[in-house]
Simulated scan of single mutants.
Amino acid sequence: MFCKLTEELQLTQNEIDVLLFLHNAAPLNTASDIARYRAMSKSMILKSVDALYRKGYLSYETDY
């Protein structure tokens, strides 16, 4: 289903999964949240988040 979208947007399936989770599961927005509910490893999530940041899809914000 996402094959055309991954080509069009130059995103991996994992990157799309992270974006969809962040959009649909607010306010859950940490790597731990994604790992818990999407059964992805934290290292894969961090790699995907970094790629999405570099591509301009995400920005970082520090929690205090």
Rank of each mutant, 00 (worst) to 15 (best):
F2Y: 08
N29Q: 03
L9D: 02
Y64I: 14
G56S: 13
A25G: 00
S43E: 15
Q13W: 06
H23E: 02
E61A: 11
N14A: 06
Q10F: 06
V49K: 11
I16L: 15
A39S: 15
D33Q: 01
M40V: 07
S32M: 06
L20N: 12
N14M: 01
D17K: 14
Y57D: 03
N29R: 03
L20W: 10
T62A: 14
V18T: 10
L19Y: 01
L22C: 04
L5D: 08
R36S: 11
N24Q: 09
M1R: 09
Y37E: 14
M1Y: 05
E8N: 08
E61C: 08
F2N: 10
L46A: 08
Y37D: 14
F2C: 02
I16E: 02
Y53G: 09
L20P: 00
T12G: 13
R54F: 09
E7A: 09
Y57R: 04
M1S: 07
M40Y: 04
Y53W: 11
L28M: 03
T62I: 15
F2E: 10
Y53S: 13
R54V: 12
D17R: 14
H23R: 06
E61K: 14
A25Q: 14
N24K: 06
C3Q: 10
T6E: 04
L19T: 00
S48E: 06
S43C: 06
